[in-house]
Design a protein around this nucleic acid. Structure first.
Length: 261
DNA sequence: ATGGTAGAGCATCTA
């Protein structure tokens, strides 16, 4: 029986959040951590700091925006960046995959979508459709697979602090929820929700809301999905709100899951 | 009250 601890964190700049990330790695010693919104070009990724902490890095960055990375204390193989479906032009750095301890890990930063009716919202829905094809073309739901990251969709009313207020907006629009359900129906289990059915668990609090964190005005938009058989081996999943109390926190926090393989 | 803050990188875009 082998333990596997994995986590995801939208860091909103890997360089600005380096201290918080390294503190978390030392405190929890995860096997791998997926990062989103690294906001660093590849030549600016702080490889040495992660190396000192015992972690290898796989990263897919661009200037100013987006950017995803996986850091792992195990060897990573089959590293892939983007959908590889030659439809993405211009490329936005929102997807990276690597196989860790025999399990493929797909780390995504799903587009935020701005507002329904906008080009950004259409791009988000197209992106989700391409993601489903990506899973269909590259993986099988009967095999172990992890999909995690900033999904930018609240699946259920309990995943938004004010579902009536946000119904129909970006992040809680029926078309997005349908896309997410469609991808999950391919063979994924939302392991945090499976193990924590009660409301009030959030992973993102808007910077712009005064006292948003202390009043728990949040969204659960950072998820960890496992294919069904792997999900049965998930023994715990939790959201760590402690890093939100540190100086200059991200607007998201860490979501973790532990498996017994 | 349709606001507010944060990051990148250097005017403004994205979230």
């Amino acid at each position: 029986m082998k333990k596997l601890l994995i986590a995801t964190f939208n860091c909103n700049s890997v360089r600005s959040r380096l201290g918080i990330i390294l503190d978390w790695l030392y405190a929890h010693n995860p096997d791998a951590l997926c990062l989103q919104e690294t906001k660093a070009q590849d030549h600016d990724f702080p490889v040495a700091a992660f190396d000192d902490a015992g972690y290898d890095c796989a990263f897919h960055g661009q200037k100013s925006y987006n950017g995803v990375a996986i850091v792992s204390r195990h060897e990573m193989s089959d590293i892939g960046k983007g959908f590889g479906d030659d439809a993405e032009s211009p490329e936005q750095a929102r997807l990276i995959r690597a196989t860790i301890c025999g399990i493929p890990v797909v780390n995504t930063y799903v587009p935020q979508g701005f507002e329904p009716g906008s080009d950004k919202f259409r791009y988000k829905l197209e992106w989700l459709a391409r993601l489903k094809k990506y899973f269909e073309n590259n993986f099988h739901p009967d095999e172990p697979l992890l999909w995690m990251g900033d999904i930018n969709i609240a699946p259920e009313p309990i995943d938004v602090y004010a579902p009536d207020e946000f119904e129909g907006g970006a992040g809680f629009h029926p078309d997005e929820r349908a896309s997410l359900k469609d991808i999950a129906a391919w063979g994924f289990v939302d392991v945090f929700r499976a193990l924590n059915p009660e409301p009030g668990h959030y992973s993102f609090w808007d910077y712009r809301l005064r006292g948003g964190l202390s009043r728990n005005l949040g969204w659960r938009i950072d998820h960890i999905y496992a294919t069904r058989l792997l999900a049965e081996q998930c023994v715990a999943s939790w959201i760590d709100t402690a890093p939100r109390s540190k100086e200059k926190p991200s607007d998201h926090t860490f979501v973790a899951a532990e498996f017994r393989l």
